[in-house]
């Protein structure tokens, strides 16, 4: 656990020196949101229907691009081998990276959600805490699977293209659950849909367990 915290600190230090990943992610998601406003006319009633889906599509696309450097940038100087040589478990490395990506993605969402609410004329008053719960569960699922797949695609050619291809079909259940629970919050009478929340939690647990079980094969020599 301490080892994972150290890896996390290393990832955070690396990112906050340049902040390039975070900036790129936020801008990319904003571009997607703006493009959608041309594809669908966002009047208030329409945006209640399309808004949640749009928001999550933007997050998923941004995430599938942002998660790529997580392992790929270890490749340039083969620093992953150095990490592996440290007397820590493979899962600590993976967990540290998952947590770092989770923090980056959450920070991006903290900026994006208010902007989105303003642009699409949706009110966040009264649903903030419940929305945060949905965002946390959804983002956790995205970063767990995304970090694992980033470790997979780092070894491939065309990895920037491969990661979305691997990740996005796998995330369809997460997308449905996240969109439905967000939509239940943006409805006229906001009421959080517990079934979908449980589904999101289940998704996170299944894939977190799977990555714990498989991480030795994922990071092996």
């Amino acid at each position: 656990m301490r080892a994972a915290a150290i890896v996390l600190a290393k990832e955070l230090r690396l990112e906050f020196r340049t902040r390039e990943l975070l900036t790129a992610t936020v801008i990319f998601a904003l571009v997607v949101v703006v493009l959608f406003s041309f594809a669908f006319d966002p009047t208030a009633a329409e945006s209640r229907r399309y808004g949640p889906g749009l928001l999550w599509i933007a997050f998923l696309f941004a995430g599938s691009l942002m998660l790529n450097p997580s392992f790929a940038r270890e490749q340039n100087n083969e620093t992953l081998d150095a990490l592996r040589m440290a007397p820590i478990s493979n899962f600590a490395i993976l967990l540290g990276k998952i947590l770092a990506n989770f923090i980056f993605m959450s920070l991006a969402e903290v900026i994006l959600v208010p902007v989105f609410a303003v642009l699409y004329n949706l009110s966040l008053a009264g649903i903030v805490w419940r929305l945060i719960l949905v965002l946390v569960l959804g983002t956790l699922g995205l970063t767990v699977t995304g970090t694992v797949f980033s470790a997979i695609s780092a070894h491939a050619r065309m990895r920037e293209l491969l990661l979305p291809l691997l990740l996005l079909p796998l995330l369809t259940p997460l997308l449905i659950a996240a969109v439905e629970s967000t939509a239940s919050l943006f409805a006229e009478q906001p009421a959080l849909d517990r079934t979908w929340l449980a589904f999101l939690a289940g998704f996170d647990i299944v894939f977190l367990t799977a990555s714990w079980l498989l991480c030795d094969h994922l990071l092996e020599e």
Binding site: L170, G202, L218
Partner: peptide
């Protein structure tokens, strides 16, 4: 790597169906 991916994909299918 492809074995890990195949296992993730197999885990995902019941979730897709359920969703």
């Amino acid at each position: 790597l492809s074995a890990v991916f195949a296992i993730f994909a197999s885990l995902d299918i019941p979730l897709v169906y359920l969703a």
